[in-house]
Design a binder for these strands. Structure first.
Ligand SMILES: [Mn+2]
Ligand SMILES: [Mn+2]
Ligand SMILES: [Zn+2]
Ligand SMILES: [Zn+2]
Lengths: 147, 147
DNA sequence: GTATAGACTTGGAATAGTTCTAAGTCTAAC
DNA sequence: GTTAGACTTAGAACTATTCCAAGTCTATAC
């Protein structure tokens, strides 16, 4: 199995950060601890809430700064499924997503389960950065379309 | 070919709106005229700018109201590729997209060119709404990653 | 140890896209 | 010609995010 973080050991996290050329500060280690405790999808507000459970300690600005830094360094990736809020995904292996539009929950889909074959020719002078497949789902039998 | 609107004939547009159970008002016809003049991807701000080229006539609120109505009635669809701005797509046939992250331009990919096979099992008690494939591209040889 | 520079964090202000509100205008039916 | 409901509008409100300017921390230099 490939679960880097069963439990969240600050030591291990610090090493992970250093591996990605990120100086491990108290706040960064805390935030990474949340992101990697479970392979989950969070948006900034959720990270902010979790990191400050109990006594508030990390500012909103730092949460955004840190998430942005983690993205830049390739530790997490962003997922865009909804206007006006970015999901941060601690699973950086190539994979795809179900998005439940009712609950707002993202679920991973292994790349093997969804093959994009016959890649179409890219626009001139561009190179591919990523392929994202998002399958939107909703609870069965919910508003089929306003009649 | 399937180009519904080579030129933008208000008459034809009004009929299209009625077909979709939308009362054609002056503003709605104008906005639809922009959306369907070219099979393009616009965000609200662009529609607002175009509809008001020259003498301003349509309010921002109406642009948003109208785009929302068109989406609800299935005349256009939304595309989420970037945080904080929604693209409106006048091509409602199932298809996918290239997104040039440098220029912010969306390009259509025919569904035939990208087959998602072996659909994975959906989460329990959900039904599929849509499958979106977004291939992010960038100008060849642009910032490979801050070193 | 102490000084110091740069990196980091922070509260609050600012921004930007979008939605809401409450008041006015238009239109279609009577 | 009235009237009710649909539609439009300016601007306020809202929300996620970024920016800013001021403080704090930390790692190295002495
Ligand atoms: Mn918003
Ligand atoms: Mn925004
Ligand atoms: Zn994921
Ligand atoms: Zn399209």
């Amino acid at each position: 199995m490939d679960m880097k973080f069963q439990t969240v050991d600050p030591q291990t996290i610090s090493e992970l950060l250093r591996t990605h050329q990120i100086t491990p500060t108290t706040q960064r280690v805390k935030i990474a601890g949340i992101l990697f405790a479970e392979a989950a999808h969070f948006y900034a507000e959720q990270v902010y809430a979790r990191v400050n459970e109990g006594d508030a300690e990390v500012s909103k600005a730092t949460v955004y700064n840190t998430l942005g830094l983690f993205v830049a360094k390739g530790l997490v990736r962003q997922v865009f499924v909804d206007p006006g809020r970015v999901f941060y995904d601690s699973n950086t292996k190539p994979h795809h997503h179900f998005y439940d539009t009712a609950s707002g929950k993202l679920t991973d889909i292994d790349t093997l389960a969804v093959a994009v074959h016959e890649m179409p020719p890219l626009p001139a002078d561009t190179e591919m950065e990523s392929v994202d497949v998002i399958i939107r789902v909703s609870p069965r039998g919910a508003k089929p379309r306003p009649e």
